[in-house]
Amino acid sequence: MARMIGAKAFFVAISALFVSSSATFSAPASALSMQTGAITSQPIGHYEFCQQYRSECAAGQRDPGPAKVTEFGWNVVRNINSTINHELTPVTDKELYGKDEHWAYPDTAGDCEDFVLLKRRKLIEHGFSAADLLITVVRKPDGEGHAVLTVRSTDGDYILDNLDGDVKLWTETPYRYLKRQASFHPGRWVSIENGDALMVSSVGK
């Protein structure tokens, strides 16, 4: 009986994060979502990460389409983004590991990819689908590469960024979007076809 009650409580908690009607998942993609293209190269750091955490990059991930996230769910997203941004110290891989590229779950410090990995894991622990939590590679206005976490939803694609305390729609960020994890396979990556087509007018000012 206690196990049944615990399972019911977990279901209620997950239900608070999402509106899970069949109509939600069959709805067309939002115009505020990234348009992904063909399979592209996997970042070397993620490839090496997958060698260590094989179960997190294995095939078999189900993609029912972006979910309708509730206001409670967005509060969870914002809280995790803010908490991790404040708890971790930004440090380059060179300083931390003595190499240019190394993706890992951070303890107290890490590079942008490490922030992303931890946020993704925390959101999965809170009931979000891995198919809606996609590591994304972008280029900053100064030309430097950067990694952010994309949260897919029926309202569009939102960005969790260690350089910004706010969770923003991807078109409201100053980045050029290059590629991201495939929603159908966490070990594969796809190109982003409209990565610089929807930039807001404030970019570059």
Rank of each mutant, 00 (worst) to 15 (best):
D155S: 14
V138S: 01
F72P: 04
R139I: 15
C112K: 04
D132A: 04
D100I: 09
Q61Y: 00
E48H: 12
E101V: 15
K140I: 00
E172S: 14
R139W: 10
E48V: 15
R62V: 13
A147I: 12
R62F: 06
V69W: 06
A109H: 14
R3G: 10
R176W: 13
D155R: 14
I124L: 04
L17I: 02
L117G: 05
A7Q: 12
S20A: 11
S33K: 02
S21E: 12
A182T: 03
S202A: 12
Q51V: 08
A31I: 08
V138K: 01
S26V: 15
A29L: 09
A27V: 09
D142A: 02
I14V: 15
V203T: 03
F10Y: 12
F115C: 07
V19L: 12
E172K: 15
F128V: 02
E71H: 08
K119V: 03
D100G: 12
H46D: 09
A29K: 06
Q61H: 01
K140D: 04
V167S: 06
S55H: 10
T136G: 02
G145P: 05
S20E: 09
A147S: 13
L163S: 06
A131Q: 06
W103N: 00
D164Q: 10
T108R: 15
N194S: 02
D157A: 03
R3Y: 09
V203S: 02
S33A: 02
G195S: 00
A29V: 05
V91F: 08
P90T: 04
A13G: 04
A9D: 11
P174F: 06
P141M: 01
T136N: 04
C57G: 01
G143Q: 01
